[in-house]
Design a binder for these strands. Structure first.
Length: 244
DNA sequence: AAGAACGCCAACCGCACACCG
DNA sequence: CCGGTGTGCGGTTGGCGTTCT
């Protein structure tokens, strides 16, 4: 499947490259108003000369209100390293367990800092995780993809000698962890790693629209009203950030 | 001071999966 | 069941800023 299909959008006449603050505002305003719907149709409706994919990426990696900006803490880096040992290059999985961080961000961090740092470490020490770490990652990941397609089991089941039952995260119920609970289905071992690391996490900016991503879950009119007020706050915040 | 080399990160590309008619 | 379409993911790249020579 997927081969030979038409490109996601007609790229003729579409903007590429860096986003302008105007485009950002348009996108945020649109999503603020209508929520995340059809990405392909979104740019047209929002008056953006971008392809839907580009809009989605921009939203997820940059404009989303619950994005955590700034440097990664050491704890976060350790978490990433440990999750990477368990999951391989499945950045979205790793990201789903690091609230406020995007897969792209983590991927970049890994490729720039962590890989190098780990390489330096590993040259000195024995490779305890040779079956699960960077060595043979490619094949490992491919193999896991195959496994996952049928059973949704993660690399843990192959790197460990037993097959861990798939579970949905069911950690604590505070605000910052809900994302993980909602987003990821991970094995208990991974959850353990996450929980070990999450004691440090304090949301830097749980923006007014932080829940907006999950707006579809809003049910009562009270909740909706509150959310609208929050959304306005977020929009104002964003406009300020973008110096508009 | 200027150019080269390097590092970082936002964004793009193509593939694969999920869903729907 | 099958084909088409939308979405998500991971790899890669381009461009900009910083550091080095």
């Amino acid at each position: 499947m997927g081969r030979g299909r038409a490109p996601c959008c007609d790229k003729v006449g579409l903007n590429k490259g860096a986003w302008t603050s105007e485009e950002d505002t348009k996108l945020v305003a649109f999503i603020h108003k209508h929520g995340r719907g059809n990405w392909r149709a979104l740019p047209k409706q929002a008056g953006l000369l971008r392809c839907g994919k580009s809009c989605r990426l921009r939203w997820i990696n940059y404009l989303r209100p619950d994005i955590k900006r700034g440097n990664f803490t050491e704890e976060e880096e350790e978490t990433i390293i440990r999750l990477h040992e368990q999951l391989g290059n499945r950045w979205s999985k790793i990201a789903s367990c690091l609230p406020g961080r995007t897969d792209n961000e983590i991927k970049n961090l890994w490729n720039t800092h962590l890989k190098r740092r780990l390489g330096a470490k590993q040259t000195g020490s024995s490779r305890a995780h040779s079956s699960c770490g960077k060595v043979g990652d490619e094949q490992h990941h491919k193999q896991e993809s195959i496994n996952e397609s049928s059973s949704s089991s993660s690399c843990i089941s192959s790197s460990e000698s037993h097959v861990a039952p798939r579970v949905t995260c069911s950690g604590p119920h505070d605000e910052t962890k809900n994302r993980c609970i909602e987003d990821c289905s991970i094995e208990p071992e991974v959850w353990g790693v996450v929980m070990d690391e999450f004691s440090f996490f304090v949301p830097p900016y749980v923006g007014p629209m932080a829940e907006g991503v999950h707006r579809s879950t809003a049910t009562t009119s009270e909740e909706k009203a509150t959310r609208e007020i929050e959304d306005d706050g977020w929009l104002a915040y964003l406009e300020e950030e973008l110096q508009l």
